[in-house]
Nucleic acid binder design. Structure first.
Length: 426
RNA sequence: CGGGGUGUAGCGCAGCCUGGUAGCGCGCCUGGUUUGGGUCCAGGAUGUCGGGGGUUCAAAUCCUCUCACCCCGACCA
């Protein structure tokens, strides 16, 4: 993509409303723009990142044996009356009426919809276990939206729902999701700590929150240092349950099982939440299957959320410096930024064109800054939007047949011949 | 919802106290200049001063109602 044809309205100054780093940087790099309180439009640069994150989440959900569906954003109130949540959910639920004055709502989650789907079609234990997920926009009318898309009212969430015949089966599903989550966050260069949590409005008795360590996190968490050594490949639910991690309101320093020297404290951003809640929805929605003994059994359920749009902010919180964002390669909007420092120099521009075309041919996602601007502005913009690699071509280097390759995260720079630079990238 | 604050050009702000033709920086447009860390020079465009009502000869400025947004707290992916 050529910068001259792309659209990323970068800002030199920070809009006054933005306090936290991710919010500031998302606005300044032209990833998002606010429509109204807690509701944002995603501009091309931001959307690229959002899609990459969603794709990683999708791949790991699929790998864990889940099936993707797509459920509606608008749901009928009747469905929620059946679970009793139409009343319980309170003002966080956006309630609307259609032209027939029927009560509708913008879905904050989808237990009701998915359980009804399950109940409609699945009748036998032989079809279990099943796990369905979707990645869909949700709306929760938060008391106080803040931090940009980190606590928006409208947000993109992956929500997965598991259906098992037995409690043991449900725990296996739960564990599969825990493992998928650890793997998902690791792919985005995030250290996620599963913190034991109360299950809140969703109900049930087993629940973990996934917290990303970040200074600007909203909650304080206490955890065993061993959490930092978790290995995705050996992770088990039993092992997780032996480790201590708690949010500040749950943490009791008097009765903490972890000795002080192994207890760490940090700020966390909640990016995922997993629940086991048994038959809370299967009974009211008639989600029963016939068991091997010919008896009707209500299915054991769990649900598993990941805040996909929130992850964009969480990743920036974890990966930025004073100049801008430092994207992990897996979620970067482009892998390489190609800087033409002198558009008016024909040799320099010709060289950049060659490099650009070769990168494209090599399947490299590249943003070629071909705008007619001074070098300083180009450096500043490129550091701000935070692409992992920069290939810098100026008149100086052209004379020597060289360019500079810079790693945004480490700030390491090497002077390379054009051929070597291309080899480096490809 | 309780507490605090802000609305003036695309962004950041001054002007308001003490009423009198609406300003600055950045950005934007034109021309030139510069080209390895937000070049420099010249010229130019852009405002229902958040909205309604009131006081006044006169309101961005005073009064009043209202709307929106932000920050701190309790909730949440």
């Amino acid at each position: 993509m050529r910068s001259s044809l792309f659209f990323y309205p970068t800002l030199k100054e920070t809009p006054q409303e933005a306090q936290v780093a991710s919010h500031r940087l998302m606005l300044r790099s032209g990833m998002i723009t606010q429509v109204t309180s807690g509701i944002y439009s995603w501009l091309p640069l931001g959307l690229r990142v959002l899609k990459k994150i969603a794709q990683i989440v999708r791949e790991e959900q699929d790998r864990a044996g889940s099936l993707e569906v797509l459920m509606p954003t608008i749901q009928p109130a009747e469905l929620w009356e059946r679970s009793g949540r139409y009343h319980d959910y309170g003002k966080e639920m956006l309630r609307i009426k259609d032209r027939h004055e029927r009560d509708m709502l913008y879905g904050p989650t989808a237990e009701e919809v998915i359980t009804e789907i399950f109940a409609r079609f699945i009748k036998s234990y032989r079809d279990l276990p099943k796990r369905f997920y979707n990645i869909q926009w949700k709306f929760r009318d938060e008391i106080r939206p803040r931090f940009g898309i980190m606590r928006g009212r409208e947000f993109l969430m992956k929500d997965n729902y598991s259906f098992d015949l037995t409690i043991e089966g449900a725990k296996a599903s739960y564990q599969a999701m825990l493992e998928a989550y650890v793997r998902t966050f690791a792919r985005m260069d995030l250290t996620a700590i599963p913190v034991r949590a109360s299950s809140g409005a969703i109900g049930g008795n087993l629940s973990h929150e996934f917290q990303i360590l970040a200074e600007t996190g909203e909650s304080e968490i206490f955890y065993d240092v061993d959490y930092e050594k978790l290995d995705v490949n050996t992770l088990t639910l039993d092992h997780l349950q032996t480790l201590y991690a708690a949010s500040d309101e749950l943490h009791d320093s008097q009765n903490c099982p972890v000795p002080l020297e192994r207890l760490k404290t940090a700020r966390g951003i909640e990016v995922g939440h997993v629940f086991y809640f048994g038959t809370k929805y299967s009974i009211p929605f008639n989600a029963y299957v016939m068991g091997p003994d010919g008896k009707q059994i209500p299915v054991e359920m769990g649900s598993y959320g990941i805040g996909v749009s929130r992850l964009v902010g969480a990743i920036i919180e974890a990966h930025h410096d004073e100049r801008g964002i430092k994207w992990p390669e897996s979620v970067a909007p482009f892998r390489v930024g190609l800087l033409n420092l002198n558009m008016k120099d024909a040799a320099c521009s010709q060289l950049c064109e060659d490099i650009y075309l070769k990168l494209l041919q090599g399947g490299i996602d590249v943003l070629y800054d071909d705008r007619d601007m001074g070098p300083g502005a180009k450096f500043a913009d490129m550091d701000l939007i935070g692409l992992p690699w920069q290939i810098i071509v100026g008149s100086r280097g052209v004379a020597l047949g060289q360019c500079e390759v810079k790693n945004r995260r480490t700030d390491e720079r090497v002077q390379l011949s054009i051929e070597d630079a291309l080899k480096w990238m490809l």
